[in-house]
Simulated assay, not measured.
Amino acid sequence: MSSPSLSSLVLWCLGAFLCGSIPFGLLLVKLAGKGDVRQHGSGNIGATNVSRVGGKALGIVTLLLDILKGFLPVFLAKRLGLGEPVLALLALWAVLGHVFTPWLAFKGGKGVATALGVALAFKASMVLPALGVFIVLLLVFRYVSLGSVMSAAALPLVLLWKGAPPMVLLLWSGISLLVIVKHHENIGRLLKGTESPLWGAKKEKAHV
């Protein structure tokens, strides 16, 4: 595994941030002639809100593109032989790009799909346990937000179990914390019992 120079590392981080910052949900809904997704539902630019505003097909495309924009920079760096701490750092910057996209006044999505993308590129085996947590909680409780928060929390725990080095654990804990914090409103509604489920909720009143 190689280590880049400081200048190269800065460029890699910038590239990961810009790649993660592309607001695919916003762009796709506008191209579909359905207006600004931020003015509907939860106001989020992620796949869940896009599916409620623009339909399931548009939501699926948004999900795949948001995964891809996280996957790509980490995958390229991995193919070039960069070490795991660098890959974890790039993963964090890609998720930061989605959450704080500069094209939308640094207001973006909640980072779930992009976190999935960087995880797939970083170590695909860490995704299955987290995905299992998401699916089980979604099927039982119907809340995307609950599944998202708990699956994000599972990622660094999986790495800890796999014996990842401290720096990698720290960076992935940062990614997990970022996703959880971005769901703070959902967490509040879950605690109050007012969160809208994935199915059976009206489009304009969905909060995920």
Rank of each mutant, 00 (worst) to 15 (best):
S2Y: 14
A57G: 05
G43C: 14
L31T: 03
V118P: 05
V50G: 10
L58T: 08
L177R: 07
I67N: 06
I22Q: 05
K203H: 00
L170W: 13
M1I: 12
E84D: 15
G20R: 03
L159A: 14
S3L: 15
W199A: 05
L146C: 07
V86W: 13
V99T: 09
R189G: 00
R38S: 05
L120C: 08
G81R: 12
G35K: 13
W199C: 04
L82H: 15
L90P: 15
R38P: 07
G132A: 10
S125C: 07
L139T: 02
S21M: 06
M1F: 12
A121W: 09
S42P: 00
H207I: 07
S7K: 14
S125W: 08
D66S: 02
A77P: 10
P4K: 07
L9C: 12
N49H: 02
I67E: 01
G83F: 11
L80H: 14
L169F: 08
K182I: 00
L116G: 10
L178N: 10
H207K: 11
V95Y: 03
H207P: 01
G33T: 06
V127H: 02
G117H: 05
G97R: 04
V50Y: 04
I187F: 03
L76Q: 00
N186Q: 01
L31H: 10
E204G: 03
P166Q: 14
L14Q: 05
A153L: 15
H207G: 00
